[in-house]
C-alpha cells in the first residue's frame, strides 16, 4: 500500500513538471494522453495495480488514485481554458451571421385543421370515431333514411365498386356503426375522407375530408344543436363570426338546418365580394335533429332519446379560413403551398 502511495506522489510531481511551460494545445494533448489514456495512461494504469492489494486496502487506495485523477483532470482543464483564451481580433467570428437552420417537416394543412377541429370538440366532451371508407349501401344510404330509388340520392353522387360496395359519400356511416355498438349518451365526431363522383374544379373534388358530429341523449334539442355549432364556429373562425341557421333538407335529419357564417372575406360588407358573391353568407355546415327513423334503424327509441348531427367539409372550411381560391391546391402537394402551414 505504501508503495502505491509513493507512486502516486511521484506521478503527481512528474505531472506538475510536464505541464510547466506548455504553450500549445498539441503539447497539452500529448500530456493528456500520457496520463489519462484509458489503456496506457500512467494514471489509468494505477487502477490496474489495485488487483495486487489486500481487499481491506482497496477502498482507500482507490480513493487516492481517484483524487490524483481528478487533480490531473482539473489542471489540464484549467490549462486548456488558458490556452484557448481570448483570440486574436482577426479570428473573431461575426456573431451576427445566421444561426444554424434546421429543416422541420410540415403537416398537411387539411390535417392541421382536422386536428384543430378535433381539439375543439374534445374540449366539449366529444370523442373521435373512425370507420371504413369502402361502405355498403345500407350504411351509406338506407340506414340514413334514403329510400332506394329516391331522388335524394342524386345529391350524393356516388362512386360504386359493385352492387354491394361503394365509396362512402359522407362519414355518416360511422355514426350508424357507433350507434349500433353503443347506447346513448353518445357524443362523437367522425372525421375522414369521403368520395363523390365529381370532376375536380376549384370548388369540387372527387375526394375530400369531412368531419361529422353526433350527439344523442335524453332531452337533446335544436337549441343544443345551435349552441354547440355556434361555439364551435366561433372558436374555429373568430369570436365575432356571425352564424346563421336556415331550414334545409337532409334525409337523415328532421328538422334540418344549413349553417352559414358571415363572409370571412368581406365581413358582409362588399356587394361584389368574389367569395360570398355579395350575399354576405357562406354555406358551411349541414345539420339537424337526427331523424326518428334513423334512431329506430339502430334500435334507439326516438321517444326516449333525441339527438342532433352535423357535417362539415374540412377542405371547404380551410378554404374560407385562409382564403384559398381553389380546393385542388390541397391535393397538388406543392411543397411551397404545404410548407406555409408549418407556421400555422
Amino acid at each position: 500500500m505504501s508503495g502505491l502511495k509513493e507512486k502516486i506522489e511521484k506521478l503527481q510531481e512528474r505531472f506538475d513538471e510536464a505541464i510547466e511551460g506548455i504553450t500549445d494545445e498539441k503539447a497539452l494533448q500529448e500530456v493528456r494522453n500520457l496520463y489519462l489514456s484509458r489503456s496506457r495512461g500512467s494514471v489509468s494504469s494505477l487502477f490496474g495495480e489495485l488487483k495486487s492489494l489486500k481487499p481491506e486496502e482497496k477502498p482507500d487506495a482507490g480513493k487516492e488514485i481517484n483524487a490524483l485523477k481528478e487533480y490531473v483532470q482539473d489542471k489540464l482543464q484549467a490549462l486548456q481554458i488558458q490556452l484557448s483564451g481570448p483570440r486574436a481580433v482577426e479570428e473573431m467570428v461575426d456573431l451576427t451571421l445566421p444561426g444554424e437552420a434546421s429543416y422541420i417537416g410540415s403537416p398537411h394543412p387539411i390535417l392541421i385543421i382536422q386536428q384543430e377541429i378535433e381539439n375543439i370538440f374534445l374540449s366539449m366532451g366529444f370523442s373521435v370515431e373512425e370507420g371504413p371508407e369502402i361502405e355498403t349501401d345500407y350504411y351509406n344510404f338506407e340506414a340514413l333514411n334514403f329510400p332506394p330509388h329516391h331522388p335524394a340520392r342524386d345529391d350524393w353522387d356516388t362512386l360504386y365498386i359493385n352492387d354491394d360496395f361503394l365509396l362512402r359519400t359522407h362519414t355518416s356511416p360511422v355514426q350508424i356503426r357507433v350507434m349500433e355498438k353503443r347506447k346513448p349518451p353518445i357524443r362523437i365526431i367522425t372525421p375522414g375522407k369521403v368520395f363523390r363522383k365529381e370532376s375536380p374544379d376549384p370548388t369540387h373534388l372527387p375526394m375530400f375530408y369531412q368531419v361529422e358530429g353526433l350527439v344523442v341523449d335524453r332531452g337533446i334539442t335544436f337549441a343544443h344543436l345551435k349552441g354547440t355549432l355556434e361555439s364551435f364556429l366561433k372558436i374555429l373562425f373568430h369570436e365575432k363570426t356571425k352564424v346563421r341557421f336556415r331550414p334545409s333538407f337532409f334525409p337523415f335529419t328532421e328538422p334540418s338546418a344549413e349553417v352559414d357564417i358571415g363572409c370571412t372575406v368581406c365581413n358582409r360588407e362588399d356587394s361584389a365580394c368574389r367569395v360570398c358573391g355579395g350575399g354576405g353568407w357562406i354555406e358551411l355546415l349541414g345539420s339537424g335533429m337526427v331523424d326518428p327513423q334513423v334512431l329506430k334503424n339502430v334500435n334507439i327509441d326516438p321517444e326516449e332519446y333525441s339527438g342532433f348531427a352535423f357535417g362539415l367539409g374540412i377542405d371547404r372550411a380551410a378554404m374560407f379560413l385562409y382564403q384559398i381560391p381553389d380546393l385542388r391546391y390541397f391535393y397538388e402537394n406543392d411543397l411551397r403551398f404545404i410548407r406555409q402551414f408549418l407556421q400555422k
Partner: peptide, 9 residues
C-alpha cells in the same frame, strides 16, 4: 330558426 335559443348540451 333565429328565434330558437342557443344552449350548450
Amino acid at each position: 330558426y333565429e328565434n330558437i335559443p342557443s344552449v350548450f348540451p
